[in-house]
């Protein structure tokens, strides 16, 4: 059974002037961790708000746990957990008061469902008398997750839970999500960090209200059609400029310690010509290899196709 379905969902704002979600369809299976990957303004939050019954779509239908988001909105609200992108707990209540509040609203208590949140809450317990507004980013995020989990939801909606959070807290957070998934909770999560995409069962790459590609991360990467090259030298900025000046180079951008690029026409002969061109300018310490794309490379390629050459 599908835990979430969307069929031809469209949402506009300002009387149709802004197209936020453009004919989006996808389904999330029960127990699956599904990631919506895309930058600010891609339409991710609108989808979350439609599925959590906080916003009406202009067109299309959507269900959560088999319930229709319009007809059965009250049922849905009782069985989902939602962590919005913006911190939306009560800043002037303490950690414990916030959690108590959310438990009570959902007709339960901290004691009754303590198992559900125990792993996360132990990290928060030393601060349980601190006001939520005074917590650090990582702690706020953990509290928000506890509040979203306290009523044992079937489906969890996490809208950019790790934005602005450091690497250590991000890893901890994804470890927690893995455990929740193992318990059978369906998770829809959005992020603008491409490296988090590979942690999901399936992902949808989203931009400008549209889904550009949707599959398992492995298959998204496998479907990258061209050869992708990686190159580095001790003068990276100059190397980048030289590559961009070359007619056979299509997309070309810094990717960690390397520069990634694709060629209009690959093939050994063309690769050798380019290599010679680069060696003439960066003879000392040029490293040149073919490389395996990442989700980020896939995303950049799709972006480039969309607006005719960005990423350059």
């Amino acid at each position: 059974m599908n835990a979430i379905t969307l069929e031809h969902i469209t949402k506009t704002y300002n009387k149709g002037a802004v197209l936020a979600v453009d004919d989006v369809s996808f389904a999330v299976e029960k127990g699956e961790m599904f990631g919506i990957i895309g930058p600010d303004g891609a339409g991710k939050t609108s989808i979350f708000r439609i599925l959590t019954t906080l916003l009406l779509a202009d067109k299309g239908t959507a269900t959560v746990a088999g319930y229709d988001v319009i007809k059965d909105f009250q049922k849905i609200r009782g069985i989902i957990g939602y962590m919005p992108g913006r911190f939306s707990l009560y800043q002037d209540l303490t950690v414990e008061e916030n959690l108590n509040f959310f438990a009570t609203v959902f007709g339960t208590s901290i004691d009754e469902n303590y198992d559900q949140i125990k792993d996360i809450y132990v990290m928060l317990e030393p601060f349980k008398d601190r006001r939520a507004g005074k917590l650090s980013g990582g702690m706020k995020q953990k509290l928000a997750l506890c509040c979203a989990l306290i009523h044992k939801p079937e489906v969890l909606f996490l809208d950019e839970p790790t934005t602005g959070v450091d690497v250590v807290s991000r890893r901890e957070f994804w470890d927690i999500l893995k455990r929740l998934k193992a318990e059978g909770i369906t998770i829809l999560v959005s992020t603008s960090y491409m490296d988090e995409a590979t942690l999901c069962d399936r992902i949808a790459l989203m931009l400008g209200g549209k889904i550009l590609s949707s599959d398992t991360p492995e298959r998204v990467i496998k479907s990258y059609p061209e050869k992708l090259f990686a190159v580095k030298s001790s003068t990276m900025h100059a190397l980048l400029k030289d590559l961009r000046a070359n007619e056979n180079v299509v997309q070309c951008y810094a990717a960690g310690e390397y520069i990634h690029f694709t060629l209009k026409e690959a093939g050994e002969a063309n690769e050798n010509i380019l290599l010679k061109f680069l060696r003439d300018k960066h003879e000392k310490d040029l490293i040149f290899t073919e490389t395996v794309p990442t989700v980020e490379d896939c995303f950049i390629r799709l972006l480039g196709k969309q607006d005719g050459g960005a990423g350059n």
Binding site: A42, S192, M194, Y253, A254, E296, F299, I300, G304, A310
Partner: peptide, 24 residues
């Protein structure tokens, strides 16, 4: 201070191009 938070990867690269130019 965290100038590229939430920005798409392609734009992040373009932003870094501007940083390189300013540094040059």
């Amino acid at each position: 201070d965290e100038p590229t938070g939430g920005v798409d990867p392609s734009m992040r690269k373009q932003f870094w191009d501007m940083i390189y130019d300013a540094s040059a």
